[in-house]
Design a protein around this nucleic acid. Sequence first.
RNA 1: GAGCCGGUAGCUCAGUCGGUAGAGCAUCGCCCUUUUAAGGCGAGGGCCCUGGGUUCGAGUCCCAGCCGGCUCACCA
Length: 493
Amino acid sequence: MDELNDQRQQRIKKLDLLRDLQVPPYGTRFEVTDRAGDLIRLHGEKPKEELERESIPCRIAGRIVALRRFGKAAFAVVQDGADRLQVYLKKDRLAEPSYRVCEQLDLGDWIGVSGHLFRTKTNEFTVDVSELTFLSKALRPLPEKWHGLTDVETRYRQRYVDLIANPSVHDIFITRSRIIAGIRAFLIDKGFLEVETPMMQPIPGGATAKPFVTHHNALGVDLFLRIAPELYLKRLIVGGFPRVFEINRNFRNEGISTIHNPEFTMLEFYVAYADYNDLIALTEELFGKLAQEVRGSTTIEYQDKQINMAAPWRRWSYRQAILEVNGLDASVLQDRTAALETAKKLGVEVKQDADLPTILNEIFEETVEPNLIQPTFITDYPIELSPLARRKDTDPTLTDRFELYIAGREIANAFSELNDPLDQRQRFEAQDAQREAGDEEAHHLDEDFLRALEHGMPPTAGEGIGIDRLVMLFTNQASIRDVILFPQLRPEK
RNA sequence: GAGCCGGUAGCUCAGUCGGUAGAGCAUCGCCCUUUUAAGGCGAGGGCCCUGGGUUCGAGUCCCAGCCGGCUCACCA
């Protein structure tokens, strides 16, 4: 169908017309000395007379996204990154072959121009072009000029078109890059070492999730795409790096939704000699800094909610939160039957044979989580939900752990790491029992990880932050697909 | 996996009660040397998501499927 498309045929014809003019339709280099955005920032506010007086030369390149032709002149809007700058192409001013080239221009073509800055009659900041260089031909038409590209499926499948047609999409991904660069700078400044650990693992560990399986032919073994880097990063703490972090992809073979993509970017960092309280302070500092850098304020707006990132944030123990939100008596925390009844009364669906921690967690997720709009550290999770976290000294049924919630969503998960190899072995064995009972997502026992712990790991605190959700928060996007350049979709056709 | 909504020209969308497939932008031709969604005159462009069915006749009604969005379930 595309092959027969009339607009595409027209443009292929123009390739030959350009070649007739000795102009290669797919050129080589062009010396770019200016960026449209810089010119606009530096000179865009200057009045007409000042621009005339200064006669500022410039040389930019970009894609034509609007074209208004007259008989012997034309205005083109050139898009350079997220910025757009108008250029004026006038027959008198251009050398003879240049204007012939100008007549062949289409929306979508790449050009380079040099000339001088001026203001038009209607006061538009514009480049008066004296030399036009054709750079590359577009064979396909751009989306329509004022509605742009709105079809979400096409936006995700053909992100390149989305980026051309919707400049604001550039800003989201520029912000994403700034957030990641900001995190990296923050951690490196605090003495962290950035490392890379295996994405392909023989035993998928460090999280509760279903992995993707792949196969290595030469080794003749199945490998798993990692669900978390955690166990490898802790091996590095054992090895003697006191502060490490990794920013990389995790893969989980689970559902897709507005907050889940099968591959997602995770920051994990580990600090020797520290505990989870130290990470609370570090997290507040990091988020405050990012909010300032990216939004210019510690108050940010997310989906009509005002979120105040200024430290300190609320700390609330997991059990207290369950009790307070629902006005419950502390006795339900110890009594499975009472907890089950409470769940029913609250309209929380729970399997009849669920154990006490699971019932309480269902109640937590249904009744507490959605209300945690302002940044809140939920602390002291039960040991059953935290197979890699250190027990609390004051209560061995709880762990030294927090999860950070913002806008009703889990943003970070952190704990003092379990460094007792014998306790860790028992926890893995408990997970194995759950696996045998049918829980596909239970943690796998990792002998080499236990061997590492047996060599001694210093007291350590570790934290994971989901970067995609963090970017959603800072760019005010409702869907994770809008902060991932190429989100996973079913293949076309 | 379930429910709801959507899929018509390159793009954004109309399409009445089942009766010859429409608009704007884009494209092509002509005019036009300061436009801003430039303008004027004229023209071309369709696997109406796919496959069945009902009917004299289906973009429209029915069934099945494909793709997407949202909500729910699972998950970070």
